[in-house]
Simulated scan of single mutants.
Amino acid sequence: MAFVCSATWTAKPGEEETVRDALAQLSPAAREEPGNLYYQAYQSPEEPTVFRIFEVYTDKDDFTAHVNSEHFARWGVGQAIPALENNEHETYQTLDF
Rank of each mutant, 00 (worst) to 15 (best):
P34N: 08
A80Q: 00
L84G: 04
V56I: 14
Y39H: 11
Q40P: 09
K60Y: 07
T18W: 04
F51R: 00
I81W: 04
Y57Q: 05
G35D: 01
Q40M: 09
F51D: 06
V4Y: 09
V77I: 10
C5Q: 13
D61G: 02
V50R: 15
N87W: 12
F63W: 12
W75H: 10
V56Y: 03
S6Q: 12
T58A: 14
E46S: 15
H66C: 03
E16P: 01
E15V: 03
P28H: 12
C5M: 14
E16G: 14
Y39W: 13
F97S: 10
E46P: 05
V56P: 01
Q93T: 15
S6A: 14
F3Q: 00
Y38T: 04
P45T: 15
D96C: 09
P13S: 07
D59V: 02
Q43L: 08
S69N: 08
A24L: 09
F72E: 04
V77K: 13
A80R: 00
S44G: 09
D21N: 13
S27K: 10
H71R: 00
D21R: 15
L95T: 10
G35S: 05
Y38L: 13
N68I: 03
G78M: 05
K12G: 01
E16S: 12
S69M: 05
T49Q: 13
